[in-house]
C-alpha cells in the first residue's frame, strides 16, 4: 500500500514535469511548475524529510511562481521557439543508458530507513550523543546547521542575500 502511493506521487511528478516542458504558453508552464514543486514537496514529506518539504512548498510552489510571473511582466508571454529542433540522436541513446547505469548503481545503496547503513551507525548517533555537550543547543538540526556547519550556512546566506539584492534592483528598474 505504501509502495503504490509512492508510485502514484512519482507518476504525477513525471506528468507535471513533462507538461511544463511541452506546453507552449509560458504562463501555463509556470502554473505547471508550481504544481510540480508541490508534488515534489509531497514526496519529501512522504520520505520523512519534513523540513525539506516545507522549504519546497514555500519556495518552490509559492515564491518561485511569483518570481517567474514577475519575469513574464518584463518579457514575452509566448515561447518564441515554436518549432523546436528535434533532440540529437546521441542524446536519445546516451541519456536512457545513463539512467539505466544510475539505476544499476542505486542497487548498492543501503535500503531506505536501514538501521545498519553507515550513515545511521556512525554519524547520526555521534551527533545525537554529543551535540548538546558541544553546542548547548537542544535542537539537533539547529546545532548541525548553526554550529557544525556554520561556515557552510554563512556562505549560503551570502548567496541568498546577493540573489535578493539582485532581484530587488531588477524589479526596481522595471517599475520606473
Amino acid at each position: 500500500m505504501t509502495f503504490s502511493f509512492e508510485i502514484l506521487l512519482l507518476i504525477l511528478l513525471l506528468v507535471t514535469a513533462a507538461g511544463a516542458i511541452l506546453v507552449k504558453d509560458l504562463m501555463s508552464a509556470i502554473l505547471l511548475l508550481g504544481s510540480y514543486s508541490f508534488f515534489l514537496a509531497l514526496v519529501w514529506a512522504w520520505l520523512g524529510a519534513v523540513d525539506v518539504a516545507f522549504v519546497e512548498a514555500v519556495v518552490g510552489a509559492g515564491l518561485a511562481t511569483v518570481l517567474f510571473l514577475l519575469t513574464l511582466f518584463g518579457t514575452a508571454p509566448k515561447d518564441s521557439r515554436l518549432r523546436r529542433p528535434p533532440p540529437p540522436i546521441a542524446a536519445l541513446f546516451a541519456l536512457p543508458l545513463l539512467g539505466v547505469l544510475l539505476l544499476y548503481a542505486a542497487n548498492d545503496l543501503p535500503k531506505f530507513g536501514d538501521p545498519t547503513s553507515p550513515a545511521s551507525t556512525h554519524i547520526s548517533p555521534a551527533y545525537l550523543e554529543r551535540s548538546y555537550q558541544d553546542t548547548q543547543t537542544p535542537n539537533v538540526v539547529t546545532s548541525v546547521l548553526m554550529d557544525y556547519r556554520s561556515l557552510d550556512t554563512m556562505v549560503e546566506t551570502v548567496v541568498i542575500f546577493t540573489a535578493g539584492i539582485a532581484c530587488a534592483l531588477l524589479l526596481r528598474r522595471q517599475a520606473s
Binding site: 508541490f38 514529506a45 516545507f54 512548498a57 514555500v58 509559492g62 515564491l63
Partner: peptide
C-alpha cells in the same frame, strides 16, 4: 507545512 502552502 499545510498552512504555509495554503498562504503562499
Amino acid at each position: 507545512i499545510a498552512t504555509g502552502y495554503a498562504l503562499l
